[in-house]
Amino acid sequence: MGCFHSTASKQFPGHEDPVILASQTAFSVSEVEALFELYKSISSSVIDDGLINKEEFQLALFKNRKKENLFANRIFELFDVKKKGVIDFGDFVKSLSVFHPNAPHEDKIDFSFKLYDLDGTGFIERQEVKQMLIALLCESGMKLADETVEIILDKTFLEADVNQDGKIDKSEWQNFVRQNPSLLKIMTLPYLRDITTTFPSFVFHSEVDEIVT
């Protein structure tokens, strides 16, 4: 265990102990500290309050604060673990951890299930999937006849909704993802492997004397 100093980052409103966060996530202490550099820059981009609001989140992701999108909103809601309308550093690290290449497969399955379960009922319902499909078509400018959308939904639910009750439960989702592993591709961010190289300035603000992994 490293030795701690009282540094400016400890006074930062959204800051949490990197050693504790590292123990709870797929990140090392150094990686958590590197993420703090990213977090500081995002959380001060519009309002310098040490928390990430939705506008700052979208600005960081899309370089455009006005882009309203169903998926962006859903990702923000999932990162906002404590449901405070803002993301603190702990939320940020724990949520991003799911996207780490070394994060447990089950965590990725759980997160993706929540992502598609828009209303949080514990089921992915046909209407939710249709809503997301339409959002995707709007975003991409793709045009598909409603009949084609329904055929795609029929096929999807025929494969995924094994008990044919019109909704996909967690266990059906787990099986469906096992048969279609490419569905989890969006759940891995290769950038997270090199986070300390992307934000090398963390070294100057590090609170640990030695690298703790």
């Binding site: 990213l38 995002i42 960081a60 992701l61 899309f62 370089k63 882009k67 999108n69 169903l70 998926f71 962006a72 990702i75 991003l96 996207f99 992502l115 598609y116 999937v129 997301m132 499909l133 959002a135 995707l136 975003e139 991409s140 055929i151 795609i152 939904l153 096929k155 999807t156 494969e159 995924a160 469906f176 279609n180 490419s182 569905l183 591709k185 969006i186 961010l189 950038y191 986070i195 992307t198």
Partner: peptide, 29 residues
């Protein structure tokens, strides 16, 4: 399976194409 029937992409593969589900933007300057 009918070999003549076209292979349809499933709904989640399509949804996964959304650029808004790609968090790489956090790391691109």
């Amino acid at each position: 399976k009918n070999p003549d029937s076209p292979t349809l992409i499933n709904a989640f593969q399509l949804i996964g194409m959304s650029s808004c589900l790609d968090l790489s933007g956090f790391f691109e300057k």
